[in-house]
Structure formats: structure tokens, C-alpha cells
Design a protein around this nucleic acid. Structure first.
Length: 477
RNA sequence: CGGGGAAUGGCGCAGUUUGGUAGCGCGCACGGUUUGGGACCGUGAGGCCCCGGGUUCAAAUCCCGGUUCCCCGACCA
């Protein structure tokens, strides 16, 4: 029937089929790299624009930093270099000559930005620095998958420097909230905020916070991270300022990143066996008009109306496409469903005479999702439908997530739970605990979720020692 | 990087065992008939059979080396 493998047959095949059939991306001729096609890039751009606005609303500005980083910079922060050196791409030849010092293609920009900040910061009056940068970075990944893990990936990195830890910690928390709101409000993805365990935190961070989202196959996807870098990079790069009391102090810095991986999450959280289902706020096309006619006379009158409807809705700010391709209507229906367009408008001879249009909702398959509308007030009706579909997707994803998280109090129950969902379990924040669970179940510690704690003391499921914290465990991408 | 599969027109595949003119379905172009849930007929275009080397009169097919993709691990946004 469909052109894509069903999710039940092979979830991974479904994902790859969908990316191809929905025209999102293609493989590049370089291992682990993808080409994002216009439809996919527009989706990413729309997501990016929402997130960028949230950054600006919280006082950040964008800037650009170099692609190349001197190798020595990476080595200034011990755990940072240890964490990243296995996956670095290094340039040793430039202009045909061997370089005196190899240049690393940035895997992330803490070091070069720290170097620059050290020169910009003299006084407490220079703080805070609140900068974000949209770029791509390279990590030599062993195993890749479009959007989820590619050797080069597009993302944003925020880098801030502050006078006190209170202030930098507030920033770390604020940006985690921004990520969670972006995922939930813009992308209709319910993501769970929490603190990464010691073994899962960013190399060079004192503390890492993350949002974790549940995909359609119940695997977890770390969808955004916010790091409390303490004074680690401040010491490594001499980021010092003269405080009010005329004493020299090290800065407190943060960094936070969210990648096009979240685009993969949108695909996997909302997609179904007929294709993408895009939340209206980020959909490249919110409404597609499919004209239907038999004779030339019908074509003329139908196209006339279709053009009027198109112009009307476009002027009302709806992202709309008039599909005048020379294909059968049925083929176009399937195509727009594959591409995840929230609302399809059908206009045929019946609509011309009745002064109506037919709307088909992507969130309700088949006939039940079709409704005949008067052309009067159509724009407002569509706008409210788009809002409804957006909240419908969020509601579905939230219900799915909730019903697949199980609270457990024993290791035996955790083992069962992570076979087909997530487990919320009392554990110590101990690398040995994470390692044992991972080795025996393949599930990893996603985070200690802020909003799923109850402050009750329970025994850690591995060590038996008392703990008041519970962590989420799941198989993850 | 370890284990397992695969690479043939845009997509999905057959052909490889046993070497002998490169095929099928979908898609694409043109013409006609169609069009409210993936239209049909006719004509046609499109291939360094992943790359490099070797064996042979002759290689998609056999041999050696490499690359990429997919799945399962370890690593990771």
C-alpha cells in the first residue's frame, strides 16, 4: 500500500524511508554526512527561527566564531580534551604546506570562545556576556543516522560568562527551560527536564542538564543540553575580571546546545505510517490546496477560485501552497500527507458552485477528518484549526510518553520496564550504578528529572543505599 | 572499531551459483483519454552493473584491495 515501511515492521527502515519520501534529506558522498533538501531545511529553519526568538527574548545576541581551533586550545581543559579527542577531525596541511600547529575542526566551541572572552572581559561591568552562535560542528562518529547522529551537524551553541555562580547557574536553568518550551510549544514534543548523572555529563562541565524526549519506538533522545561549566574554562583560558571590591576573579561560564537532532525527534515523535505529521507552527507548508476538475471549463473556474483562496489565505499569513502539478488529485493527497502538511484544501466544481471548500485534517485520517467549509471566514477557521492540530499532536505525544514511563523500585522491575518503555527508578548518582545497568540492560541513565521527584527516601535499586532521587532509564539513540 | 548483510537507471529489485548483446515494476518525457483517495493506452529517454587492480578471447558475474550504506554492539548531540 504505502511507499514506506510501516513502523511496526521496522522502525528504523520507516524513519529512513520517510526522510527520502518526504523529501527531507539525501545522503552525501561523504561517510556520515547528509544533504538537507529544501523541504527539510525549511523545516529546520522554522524550528531555528522559533528558538532564535526565544534566545533574543532572554537577552542573547548572535555572533560567529571560526571553524578552525588551534589544537593546543583543546588541550587546555583536561576532561574536555579527553572527552573529545577520539572524535576530532584535524587539519594538518594548509595551502600545500604542513601546518606548524594542527587545526581542529570545531567539535564544539567552548575553547575558542573562552579564548576570545578572556580578551573581552576586564571588569565586572563587562559581564554578563550572553552570546549564541548558529553553526555546524564535526565529530568523527562511528555510527551515523540522518539528523540523529551525523559527522557534521548543524546546531546552536550558547556561551555565557558571569560574575557569580548564582548568576551562571540561573542561566543554565533558564536555558533548559527555553529548550523545554521550544520543544513543547513550538514542536509539540513533551521533553523531560533533568540533571544528567555524573557519568553522562559533558566533558568539562561541573553539571549538565538535559531535556529528554520519547520517540515513537519508545527510545529516548537527548534533545538539548545546558551546561554549568563552573570556573573550569575560566581557569583554562584565564577569563578573569576585576570585581567591585577591586579583586581579580575568575568568571563563571555556561554553554548550551540544541541540534538538528530535534528535527529527527519531530519526525519520530509525530510521524505515522502514511508519513510525516508536522506541527503547524514549524511546518514549511501549513495548508496545501489541491484543485480538482475534469473539463477545461471546470479547470478554468476551479483554478480561478483556487487562486482567490490562495491569495486570501496568503495575505492572512498562512504558509500556503497551491498544488497545480499535472497529477491526479489522489496522488497529491498522498504526497501532502507524506510531507506532513496539517491541513489540505480540496477545491472542485462542487465547491465552486457552493462557494465552499473541503478541508482535510492530517491529524484525523480519512473521511472523519474531512469537513466542508464556507469560504466566508475561511482564514480564521484554518488558523484555529492549526492551533487545534498543534495541541492535538502535543496531547497525543504527552499521553504516549506518560503511558510508557513506569515507576519501579527494584532492579528486576526496571529490567522489565526498559524492555518496552522508560523506567523511573531510585538510584545513587554513581558511575558504577549507571555502568552496571547499561551493561546488563542496554538502558542508560537519561537524567534525574526535576518534575518527577517526590522527595521520598527509597533504597537505590543497585546498591540498596538510601536515596531521595529517582532517575529515568531507557534505551536511547 | 568488532560481528552480520548489502551496493545493478531516480526508487524497489532480478540477473552472479555455472563468465558470452543488462532486464522487470514504479517513476520520468511526449501524445491521447482521464482526474472528489496513489488513472490508462501508446511511444520514448535514461546504465563506467560502487571504485581500483587482476584472471580470461570475453567479467555485473571469478580473484585481490578499497569505499559507502543498512542492522547488532562499544563511543556519542
Amino acid at each position: 500500500m504505502g511507499k514506506i515501511t510501516s513502523r511496526a515492521t521496522d522502525y528504523s527502515e520507516w524513519y529512513l524511508d520517510l526522510i527520502r519520501e518526504a523529501d527531507l534529506a539525501d545522503y552525501a558522498p561523504v561517510r556520515g554526512c547528509i544533504v538537507v533538501k529544501p523541504y527539510g531545511w525549511t523545516l529546520y529553519e522554522n524550528m531555528r527561527d522559533h528558538l532564535d526568538k526565544r534566545f533574543k527574548d532572554t537577552g542573547h545576541s548572535n555572533a560567529a566564531f571560526p571553524l578552525f581551533i588551534p589544537m593546543s586550545f583543546l588541550q587546555k581543559e583536561a576532561s574536555h580534551v579527553q572527552g573529545f579527542s577520539p572524535e576530532l577531525a584535524v587539519v594538518t596541511i594548509g595551502g600545500g604546506e604542513t601546518l606548524e600547529e594542527p587545526l581542529v575542526v570545531r567539535p564544539t566551541s567552548e575553547t575558542i570562545i573562552g579564548h576570545m572572552y578572556a580578551q573581552w572581559i576586564k571588569s565586572y561591568r563587562d559581564l554578563p556576556i550572553l552570546i549564541n552562535t548558529w553553526n555546524s560542528v564535526v565529530r568523527w562518529e562511528k555510527r551515523t543516522k540522518p539528523f540523529l547522529r551525523t559527522m557534521e551537524f548543524y546546531w546552536q551553541e550558547g556561551h555565557t560568562a558571569h560574575a557569580t555562580h548564582e548568576e551562571s547557574w540561573e542561566e543554565v536553568r533558564r536555558m533548559l527551560d527555553v529548550y523545554e518550551e521550544h520543544a513543547r510549544i513550538d514542536c509539540a514534543i513533551p521533553a523531560i527536564k533533568g540533571r544528567k548523572s555524573i557519568s553522562e555529563k559533558f566533558p568539562g562541565a561541573d553539571r549538565t542538564l538535559s531535556i529528554e524526549a520519547m520517540m515513537g519506538d519508545k527510545k529516548a533522545l537527548q534533545s538539548g543540553t545546558s551546561h554549568d561549566l563552573g570556573q573550569n574554562f575560566a581557569h583554562a583560558f584565564e577569563m578573569k575580571f576585576l570585581d567591585r571590591d577591586n579583586s581579580l576573579k575568575y568568571c563563571w561560564t555556561t554553554s548550551w546546545g540544541l541540534s538538528w537532532r530535534l528535527t529527527g525527534a519531530v519526525i519520530m515523535v509525530h510521524g505515522d505510517d502514511t508519513g510525516l505529521r508536522l506541527p503547524p507552527k514549524i511546518a514549511p507548508v501549513q495548508t496545501a490546496i489541491v484543485p480538482i476538475f475534469k473539463t477545461d471549463a471546470e479547470k478554468s473556474s476551479v483554478m480561478d477560485v483556487a487562486n482567490q483562496v490562495f491569495a486570501q489565505l496568503k495575505s492572512e499569513g498562512i504558509r500556503i501552497k497551491l498544488d497545480d502539478r499535472d497529477d491526479s488529485p489522489g496522488a497529491k493527497f498522498y504526497d501532502w500527507e507524506m510531507r506532513g502538511v496539517p491541513i489540505r484544501i480540496e477545491i472542485g466544481p462542487r465547491d465552486v458552485t457552493g462557494n465552499t471548500v473541503l478541508l482535510a485534517r492530517r491529524d484525523i485520517p480519512g473521511k472523519p477528518g474531512k469537513l466542508i467549509m464556507s469560504r466566508e471566514g475561511l482564514g480564521d477557521r484554518i488558523k484555529s484549526l492549526l492551533v487545534e492540530i498543534q495541541s492535538q499532536y502535543l496531547a497525543q505525544a504527552t499521553a504516549f510518553q506518560k503511558s510508557n514511563i513506569r515507576e519501579v523500585e527494584t532492579y528486576a522491575d526496571l529490567k522489565v520496564a526498559v524492555e518496552d518503555g522508560w523506567a523511573l527508578a531510585p538510584v545513587l548518582d554513581d558511575p558504577a550504578v549507571d555502568a552496571q545497568i547499561k551493561a546488563e540492560t542496554r538502558a542508560t541513565n537519561r537524567n534525574f528529572p526535576y518534575d518527577l521527584q517526590d522527595d521520598r527516601e527509597r533504597p537505590c535499586i543497585i546498591t540498596g543505599k538510601p536515596t531521595r532521587e529517582r532517575a529515568l532509564f531507557a534505551k536511547a539513540y
